[in-house]
Measured scan of single mutants.
Amino acid sequence: DIEITTNGEEDAKRVIKELQKRNLEYHIEVHGNQWVIKVR
């Protein structure tokens, strides 16, 4: 598993777009303004 910590929603959406392009499965956890994306 890979864990990507982003700085808020805009940053997270940019990362998610890339993950979707590669058809990767991911899970999002929001901790305040930090979005942690866990990639399987």
Rank of each mutant, 00 (worst) to 15 (best):
H27T: 15
G32L: 04
L24S: 03
V30C: 12
Q20V: 12
L19C: 06
V39L: 06
L19M: 04
A12V: 06
G32D: 13
Q20L: 11
V36L: 08
T5F: 14
N7A: 10
H31K: 13
V30K: 12
K13Y: 12
I16E: 04
N23Q: 10
I16W: 01
N23K: 11
I16R: 01
K38T: 15
I37P: 02
I4P: 02
R22G: 05
E18N: 06
A12H: 03
H27P: 00
V30I: 14
G8A: 08
G32Y: 02
T6S: 04
G32T: 02
I16D: 00
E9A: 12
I37F: 03
H27Y: 14
K13F: 12
T5H: 13
H27G: 05
E10L: 09
L24I: 13
E3L: 14
I16G: 03
N33M: 04
R14M: 10
N33K: 05
V30T: 06
Y26N: 00
Q34S: 08
D11I: 08
D1A: 12
Q20M: 11
I37Q: 00
I28S: 01
Q20H: 08
N33D: 14
D1C: 14
G32E: 12
V36R: 04
Y26E: 00
R40K: 14
K38I: 15
I2T: 07
I4H: 02
D11H: 12
V15N: 01
E3F: 15
A12G: 05
K21R: 14
H27E: 14
K38E: 04
Y26L: 05
V39R: 00
Q34Y: 10
V15E: 02
G32R: 02
R40Y: 10
G32V: 02
D1R: 10
K17V: 11
G32K: 05
N33S: 07
Q34N: 13
N33R: 03
Q34P: 00
I4F: 09
W35H: 10
E18S: 07
K21V: 07
V39W: 02
E9M: 10
R22P: 01
R14A: 11
G8H: 10
E10Y: 08
I4V: 05
I16M: 08
L24K: 05
I28R: 00
I16S: 02
A12D: 00
E3H: 11
W35F: 09
K38P: 00
E10C: 14
V15R: 03
K17M: 12
H27V: 14
N33I: 03
I28A: 03
R14P: 03
T5V: 15
K38H: 14
K38C: 11
V15A: 04
L19N: 00
K17Q: 13
N33G: 12
W35R: 06
T5C: 15
I2R: 08
T5I: 15
V39C: 04
Y26T: 02
D11S: 11
I28F: 04
W35V: 15
N7D: 12
N23M: 09
I16Q: 02
V36P: 03
V39Y: 04
I37C: 05
L24E: 03
D1V: 14
Y26D: 01
V15T: 04
Q34E: 09
T6V: 15
T5W: 15
W35S: 06
R40A: 12
H27L: 12
N7W: 15
I2S: 05
V36W: 02
E25M: 09
T6L: 14
A12F: 13
E29S: 09
I37K: 01
G8C: 13
V15M: 06
K38A: 05
H27C: 14
V30Q: 09
N7G: 06
I28H: 00
E25I: 12
I28T: 03
Q20S: 06
N23S: 07
Q34I: 12
I4Y: 09
L24G: 02
H31E: 06
Q34M: 09
H27N: 11
E3T: 15
A12E: 01
K13V: 09
E3N: 08
R22L: 14
H31S: 10
K13I: 13
E9Q: 08
N23E: 07
R14Y: 08
I37A: 01
K17H: 11
W35C: 14
G8E: 07
G8F: 08
